[in-house]
Design a protein around this nucleic acid. Structure first.
Lengths: 303, 303
DNA sequence: ACTAATACATGAATCTCGCTCATGATTGAA
DNA sequence: TTCAATCATGAGCGAGATTCATGTATTAGT
């Protein structure tokens, strides 16, 4: 008899196109998923998808079950929200502060979806640039910070979001235009264009340039689009999330290059006070971020 | 994590109003169901229903989960039908013959629902009275007979429907009007009004009168309403299913009396040729009968 | 009031079935 | 060809679901 866990597996497979990747998402081994699928297939006497190296392709029967899965999963989630509402007082506010300003790109759809699910929660963005957004949590000016992992000593509740790659963007005519990858030394003499935050908060400085003893001139801008304008007009280079610059690269406005051998990776977390983290809608906000980003941003990995 | 089996349990509890009765319907012990519910309740931190002597009453949270359960169960059933359709050729015909003519009462809503679910199957009623409807199966004139259990030697596929009580109905002014129960001897000298079928096919004769050596005059009528007219106008008594006469008794047209100490019970089965019984829509027709009757008929027990 | 009956709860024992582990099979790429 | 990636398969284990035995509470009957 089919169960919700099977439907969740199915949805995960549909999302990731690969059984082994889907297995991770539902916290199972590849073997377990394989067994699950086989069980469903033999139960109904149909095949759910054609397996191949580059992912699975759903059959008609698979699509039909997938449609059921999506409906059931959504229905269950909605019912669970309603039950929480019946049980607890779910009014509250969610003031969000961003450490990484590129995140505005994906925050809007996330907030939209969140408002739909928790209309009684007041969502707000904490405006302006802050040298250390985490302090906003401690001072009670924000309820949730999206940024890099704080030291665990600070006592905050930390939920992992995703890992992404930071790339160097440069003008199309830049002298390094034909390099496949960029190392710290390559950048000597360049101007680095960043958001107006302390150098220690900028990954490429902290992780790459400083260890190599390379110190660049800096120039700041508040908006991603402004940074890219400066880059395109050859006022310097910038280091930004790959998903933040993808559309500009695709349109050939600028070039993006990998940093170092394996690329410079960074991770985003949702950080909250432990008291607030227990609120029912908090975990769901994090889930919405993860799902939305996994769907809309290229080249990220949920963590 | 909640699973479909929990939702099925919940729906069964809602239907039967009693945990122990519901347990049987989902093929579990009362204990297992009790544990299941407790697990769900503690998982969500809510109570799903107030337990009391005469059944359970759903709380708001219980109602919400129940709504989910109904939606999910219906969705799963629909998806499974679609998958069967994708897999097999599901066209076919379903010619139904009735052994018990009172069954026309509930057959219409059943057929309606069936047509909705399997529009590509041609449903038909085999008209007229037949001395032995089972023969219609063997001769290929019917695909499904609804009646009492045939001898297992006959090689038919038999699906149980429900158990019900056969009561004696009599005019309000009948000499036995104040008896609480009727025994074979009480009926000596009466006229028994029946459908026009052989005496061996009439339960009250086979099970009660004949064993007691009581032989009554018989008179026949083809329609339940005609039999009741004759009873009401004091032309005799009849023995009919309790649910078949309930509305007439409730309106005080006739009286109904229990037969013997524990009542005369009878059972209905759906009988088909094994080859036909394998067809996907057959099992579902039986399910629809069971569910519809459990919902609409008073005083029956699914078997 | 006492007893019997009915319905649900509870804890321990048991057992099922779903998971992981180890390994094999297949296929595409280098 | 070999390697790497992906999925399949079978055996064995263990968590969790079920049953069994019993307890508790409420109700009906005499």
């Amino acid at each position: 008899m089919i169960e919700i866990r099977h439907l969740r597996s199915l949805a995960a497979i549909a999302d990731s196109r690969k059984i082994s990747a889907a297995a991770e998402r539902v916290h199972l081994t590849q073997s377990a998923l394989s067994h699950q699928i086989r069980a469903i297939e033999s139960h109904y006497g149909v095949t759910l998808f054609e397996r191949s190296r580059q992912g699975v392709k759903f059959t008609q029967a698979g699509e039909r079950l997938l449609a059921l899965a999506k409906a059931v999963i959504a229905g269950v989630a909605e019912a669970e929200r309603d039950i929480i509402r019946l049980k607890d007082d779910t009014r509250g506010e969610l003031r969000i502060a961003l450490e990484c300003h590129t995140c505005f790109d994906w925050l809007m759809p996330v907030m939209d979806e969140f408002r739909r699910r928790w209309p009684e929660v007041e969502v707000d963005l904490v405006a302006g640039f802050h040298p250390n957004p985490i302090e906003l949590l401690a001072s009670g000016k924000a309820d949730l910070v999206i940024g890099s992992r704080p030291s665990r000593r600070a006592g905050f509740h930390v939920a992992p979001l995703f890992r992404y790659e930071i790339v160097v963007v440069m003008a199309k005519e830049h002298r390094l235009r034909s390099s496949r990858r960029i190392d710290a030394d390559d950048l000597r003499g360049e101007t680095l264009i960043t958001y107006p935050v302390p150098p220690q908060r900028i990954d490429v400085i902290r992780e790459v340039l400083e260890p190599a003893g390379v110190k660049l001139q800096r120039r700041t801008a508040e908006l991603t689009i402004a940074i890219l304008q400066l880059v395109a007009s050859r006022r310097g280079v910038a280091a930004l999330p790959n998903w933040g610059v993808k559309s500009y690269v695709d349109h050939d406005y600028v070039l993006a290059k990998r940093i170092g051998k394996g690329g410079l990776m960074s991770e985003l977390y949702a950080i909250a006070n432990p008291a607030d983290a227990a609120r029912p809608y908090m975990a769901e906000f994090v889930e919405i971020v993860r799902q939305t980003c996994a769907r809309e941003l290229d080249g990220i990995a949920l963590i």
